[in-house]
Design a protein around this nucleic acid. Structure first.
Length: 832
RNA sequence: GCGGGCGUGGCGGAAUCGGCAGACGCGCAGGACUUAGGAUCCUGUAGGGCAACCUGUAAGGGUUCAAAUCCCUUCGCCCGCACCA
C-alpha cells in the first residue's frame, strides 16, 4: 500500500489551487459574503508559530464557509513600514525597500507552504507608493476636517527607537516595541483628534457582541470617561480664574486646599518673588525629570508645597491655600484639583501629612461623622451637612443642584472628561509614510495638493542620523516649492506612525488596485464589516481602537456604511513550549518550516487546532504533533484500503438516506450524522476546533471498527453507505487538512476540488434512537444503568429501575419520596 | 486598590441549558504481528479497595432530587487599569 507522503501531496495541490485560482474572491451581490481576516504581519522574514496558529484558524473558517456556500474574502498583506527595515539599513547598509520586499517574498512562500487559501490578487503592501499615497490622502482628509493638527506638547520619547510614541504605545512606562524606558520631550508633533470620537468609541462598544468582553473592557478603561463638574475658583492674589474638574461637586463645601500640577501655568505667577520660589522651582525641576512610570505610580510619595497663593471657593467665599503637588497631572482634567480630605482617601492622607484642615460635609446615613475626628475618608454617598443651603440633600441630588447653582453664577458647569488623549502620529524615522505637508515662510503649513500625491519616500539616503528624521538629510526631499505661492519651502520630514497604515488596510482589500480613491464605496460596502477578525490581544487598545476611529470618521464622510470595522473578534492565545513563551534565548523555538519539513503542513495545522481552543494559550508538544500525524496516516490508510469501493461510483449518486438500515449500518449512519452536526456547530458557533477535530476522530474510529467487524460480503452490500460515510469524513476534514483531503478526493475518483464541494448536511431524523442507556440514580448516586426504549414513561422507567439487580438492594425497605426523570438521560429516585 | 478571567487524571484538554465527570489525543502498562520496531493493530488506564463500595473538578460552606457548572468565603495563578481628581 502506498504510504502517506505529505511533502509530495502538499506541493502538488498548492500548485493546483494556484493554477485554478481557487481562492479568488469577486464581489457578487447575488451571493452572501463572508469576510475572514487575520491581522496582517510585519514582514520580518520569519514565520513563527504564532503566525501559523492565527493563519490556521482563519483558514479553517475560510474553507469551511466556502463549502457552506458563502462568497468568502480571505486576503493577506504586509504591514511593511517600520523600524526593523530601517535598523537593518543602519546596521548592514541594505536598502529598506529591498530588505522588506525580500522578506515579503520569503514569508509569502512560507504561508503558501501552509496551504493557506488567500486571494493573492488582493495583496496589499503598505510600504508601496500605491498604498501609502492613500495614507497621505487620508491624512489630508483628517487635516481638512480639523482632525489632524500640530502642537507642541510634552510627548513620550523612546531613546532606543529615537522617536516619539503615542500614549497607547507606552506599556508600563516602556516602549511597546523595544521595552526601553520612555522619557518626556517637549516637541512639536502631529496629532489625530481621536478624542473627538471618544463618546462614540465608548458607546458603540455595546454593538460589538462578537468581541471578547475583556477587549471591550480594556477599551472602556482606556477611554476612561468620567462625568463630573468643572468648578471655577478665583485666585485671591491675582484675580485669575482657576478651574478644577471634580466627580464630586457635592463635596464642594469640604474643600480645604487646592493643588496644581507642577506644569500648571498659574504656578509661575503665584510663586514669582515669593520666599519659597527657589524651593518650588527645584521641586518642579525634579518632578519633571522623573519618568512617567514613577510619576504616575500610586506608590510614589505625595509631595506638596505651598505656593503662597489662595483660592476663593465660589460656594462659600472661603479662602484656601493653593499648593503645587507631584501627584497632580497636567494631562488630565484641568491640571488642578480641589482637596476634600474628608471624602477622598488620597486627600485625607495628604491633608494629615501636611496638617491641612479636614471638614466633613457628607454624613453617613449609618453613623454620624461630624463629632469625632475621622480615621479615614468617607467616600460613599450620604447626606450633605455644613453646606449652607444644600444641607439635607443626598449626594446625588447635590451633585446636580450645586453644579446648576454654580452654572447660574458663571462659576461652573457639568462636564465629561476622558483619559483618552489625542493620537500622536508623527515619527522621527525614515521608513514610513511621508506626511504630505509643506512649510512656507509666508503661507505656513500647506497641504500638498491631492494631484501631487504620493509624496515619494526618497531612496539612497545614508541612514545613520539619529534623533531626528533622516529625511532632513535629503535636500532633494526637504527643499521644495510652496504649493500655494511657489516660494522656497520645506517639507515636513517626519513620517506617519505605522498604526496609521493598519487602521484601514482591511478596507483596501475590498478594492486593492483602485487608483482613483482609497477604495470605492460599492466595493467596500459589499465586503465590510469584516465578519471575523483574528489576531493577538496585544492590539486591544492600539490597532483595534485606531481602526474603529478610522471607520467612524470615514462613515461620517459617507465613504463607508459600516459603523464598526470588525463584527466579531477572536483574540487567539499564545504558543508556548515547556511552559514558556518560545524564544531564542530559551532555546525552545519550533518553526513552522521544521514542522512542514518533518510532518507536513496538514499535520502542523491539525495539531495547532487540536491542542487547545483558539483563544487559550497553547503548549507545543512534539508528541502531540506525532499524534496528529498518526491520525492523518490512519485516515490515509482507511481510504487506501477501501478505494475499490469507489470504483465506478459517482459522488452522492445513491440516495442512501431514503434507504432503511438496521443494526450496525444504522449505527454507523447515525454516528456519521452526529459527527456532521457536532463538527458544524463547533466550527460555526463555538469556534472550538479542538472538539470538532475530536468528533472527526471519533467518526474515523467508528468507521474503522465497523469495517473490522463486518464481513467482506457486508462491505460489498453496503458499499454505498460506506462510501457516503467516507465522503463525509473527507469533507469534514478538508478545512483542517486541505492537502491530504484533496489527494484522497481525487484518488476516490472524483474531480474538481474537494474545497469546492458543499459542506455535508445532517438529518435530525437519523440522529434519533429507539433505545438508549439510562442512568439510575438513588439519592443522586448512580447505582445502575439500563437500556430502554426512549419513549418509556416515568412509571415504566421506575419499574425498570426496580427490576435492576444492582439497584434493587438500594430500594429495599425504603420509602420512595420522589422520582425525577430526565428524558434520555437518567432517573433519580429519592428514598428514605 | 479597582475591573475581568482562570483553577478538572501523569499531560493537553472534554462535559454546549443544573442531569452519568474525565470525550478526543498524548503518555504509560499489557498483548498481537515481526528478524527487528521508534511502524501498525488490540486491551487497559482518576485515586483507594479483593469486592460490594468509598473518595474525587483549588479549599471550605450553602442552594438543589441532582453542582466542575449557581451563591458566599478563602487561597493560588493570569490579564487589564491604577495618585484620573
Amino acid at each position: 500500500m502506498e504510504e502517506y507522503n505529505a511533502k509530495e501531496i502538499e506541493s502538488k495541490w498548492q500548485n493546483f489551487w494556484k493554477e485554478k485560482d481557487l481562492h479568488r474572491a469577486e464581489r457578487d451581490p447575488e451571493k452572501k459574503k463572508y469576510y475572514v481576516l487575520e491581522m496582517f504581519p510585519y514582514p520580518s522574514g520569519k514565520l513563527h508559530m504564532g503566525h501559523m496558529r492565527v493563519y490556521s484558524i482563519g483558514d479553517v473558517l475560510a474553507r469551511f464557509l466556502r463549502m457552506k456556500g458563502f462568497n468568502v474574502l480571505h486576503p493577506m498583506g504586509w504591514d511593511a513600514f517600520g523600524m526593523p527595515a530601517e535598523n537593518a539599513a543602519i546596521e548592514h547598509g541594505v536598502d529598506p525597500a529591498e530588505w522588506t520586499d525580500t522578506n515579503v517574498a520569503i514569508m509569502k512562500q512560507q504561508q503558501d507552504a501552509l496551504g493557506l487559501s488567500y486571494d493573492w490578487k488582493r495583496e496589499v503592501t503598505t510600504s508601496h507608493p500605491d498604498y501609502y499615497r492613500w495614507n497621505q490622502w487620508l491624512f489630508l482628509l483628517f487635516y481638512r476636517h480639523g482632525l489632524a493638527y500640530k502642537k507642541k506638547a510634552p510627548v513620550n520619547w523612546c531613546p532606543s527607537c529615537q522617536t516619539v510614541l503615542a500614549n497607547e504605545q507606552v506599556v508600563d512606562g516602556g516602549c511597546w516595541r523595544c521595552g526601553s524606558e520612555v522619557s518626556f520631550k517637549e516637541l512639536e508633533q502631529w496629532f489625530l483628534k481621536i478624542t473627538a470620537y471618544a463618546d462614540r468609541l465608548l458607546e458603540d462598544l455595546e454593538f460589538l457582541e462578537g468581541w471578547p468582553e475583556r477587549v471591550k473592557i480594556m477599551q472602556e478603561n482606556w477611554i476612561g470617561r468620567s462625568r463630573g463638574s468643572d468648578i471655577v475658583f478665583t485666585v485671591k492674589e491675582t484675580g485669575d480664574e482657576l478651574t478644577v474638574f471634580t466627580t464630586r461637586p457635592d463635596t464642594l463645601f469640604g474643600v480645604t486646599y487646592m493643588v496644581l500640577a507642577p506644569e500648571h501655568p498659574l504656578v509661575e505667577k503665584l510663586i514669582a518673588g515669593k520666599p519659597q520660589e527657589k524651593k518650588i522651582r527645584n521641586f518642579i525641576q525634579q518632578v519633571r525629570q522623573e519618568s512617567e512610570i514613577d510619576r504616575t505610580s500610586a506608590e510614589t510619595e505625595k509631595v506638596g508645597f505651598f505656593t503662597g497663593g489662595h483660592a476663593i471657593n465660589p460656594a462659600n467665599g472661603e479662602e484656601v491655600p493653593i499648593l503645587v503637588g507631584n501627584y497632580v497631572l497636567m494631562s488630565y482634567g484641568t491640571g488642578a484639583v480641589m482637596g476634600v480630605p474628608a471624602h477622598d482617601q488620597r486627600d485625607f492622607l495628604f491633608a494629615t501629612e501636611y496638617n491641612l484642615p479636614i471638614r466633613v460635609v457628607i454624613n453617613s446615613p449609618e453613623k454620624d461623622l461630624t463629632g469625632e475626628p475621622l480615621q479615614e475618608a468617607y467616600e460613599d454617598p450620604g447626606i450633605l451637612v455644613n453646606s449652607e443651603d444644600f444641607n439635607g440633600l443626598s449626594s446625588e441630588d447635590a451633585q446636580k443642584k450645586i453644579t446648576d447653582w454654580l452654572f447660574e453664577r458663571g462659576k461652573g458647569s457639568h462636564s465629561v472628561r476622558y483619559r483618552l488623549r489625542d493620537w500622536l502620529i508623527s515619527r522621527q524615522r525614515y521608513w514610513g509614510t511621508p506626511i504630505p505637508i509643506v512649510y512656507c515662510t509666508d503661507c505656513g503649513a500647506v497641504a500638498v495638493p491631492e494631484e501631487e500625491l504620493p509624496v515619494l519616500l526618497p531612496t539612497g539616503l545614508n541612514l545613520t542620523a539619529y534623533g531626528q528624521s533622516p529625511l532632513i538629510t535629503s535636500d532633494d526631499f526637504a527643499y521644495t516649492k510652496c504649493p500655494r505661492c511657489g516660494k522656497e519651502a520645506r517639507r515636513e520630514t517626519d513620517t506617519l506612525d505605522t498604526f496609521f497604515c493598519s487602521s484601514w488596510y482591511y478596507m483596501r482589500y475590498a478594492d486593492p488596485c483602485q487608483e482613483k480613491a482609497p477604495f470605492y464605496k460599492e466595493e467596500v460596502d459589499y465586503w465590510l464589516p469584516v465578519d471575523q477578525y483574528i489576531g493577538g490581544i496585544e492590539h486591544a487598545v492600539l490597532h483595534l481602537l485606531y481602526s474603529r476611529f478610522f471607520t467612524k470618521f470615514l462613515y461620517d464622510l459617507n465613504m463607508v456604511s459600516a459603523l464598526e470595522p470588525f463584527q466579531r473578534l477572536l483574540a487567539q492565545g499564545m504558543v508556548y513550549k515547556d511552559g514558556a513563551k518560545m524564544s531564542k534565548s530559551k532555546g525552545n523555538v519550533v518553526t513552522p518550516d521544521e514542522i512542514i519539513e518533518h510532518y507536513g503542513a496538514d499535520t502542523g495545522r491539525l495539531f495547532i487546532l487540536f491542542a487547545a481552543p483558539p483563544e487559550k494559550d497553547l503548549d507545543w508538544n512534539e508528541q502531540g504533533v506525532e499524534g496528529s500525524y498518526r491520525f492523518l496516516r490512519r485516515v490515509w490508510r482507511l481510504f487506501q484500503q477501501n478505494r475499490e469501493l469507489f470504483k465506478n461510483k459517482e459522488q452522492g449518486s445513491e440516495r442512501i438516506r431514503d434507504q432503511q438500515f438496521s443494526g450496525k449500518e444504522k449505527d454507523l449512519l447515525r454516528d456519521c450524522h452526529a459527527a456532521i452536526k457536532k463538527v458544524t456547530i463547533d466550527i460555526e458557533e463555538r469556534f472550538n476546533f479542538n472538539t470538532a477535530i475530536s468528533a472527526i476522530m471519533e467518526l474515523v474510529n467508528a468507521t474503522q471498527v465497523y469495517l473490522n467487524e463486518v464481513s467482506e460480503k457486508d462491505r460489498k452490500d453496503n458499499r454505498h453507505l460506506i462510501c457516503e460515510v467516507l465522503e463525509v469524513i473527507v469533507r469534514l476534514l478538508a478545512p483542517f487538512a486541505p492537502h491530504i483531503c484533496e489527494e484522497i478526493w481525487h484518488r476516490c475518483g472524483f474531480g474538481d476540488s474537494i474545497h469546492r464541494q458543499s459542506w455535508p448536511s445532517f438529518d435530525e431524523k437519523l440522529l434519533e434512537v429507539e433505545e438508549t442507556e439510562i442512568a439510575i440514580q438513588i439519592n443522586g448516586r448512580v447505582r445502575g444503568r439500563v437500556f430502554v426504549p426512549v419513549d418509556l414513561s416515568k412509571d415504566e422507567l421506575l419499574e425498570e429501575a426496580r427490576l435492576n439487580e444492582k439497584v434493587r438492594p438500594h430500594l429495599e425497605d425504603k420509602e420512595v419520596l420522589k422520582v425525577i426523570t430526565v428524558p434520555g438521560r437518567l432517573i433519580n429516585i429519592v428514598v428514605r
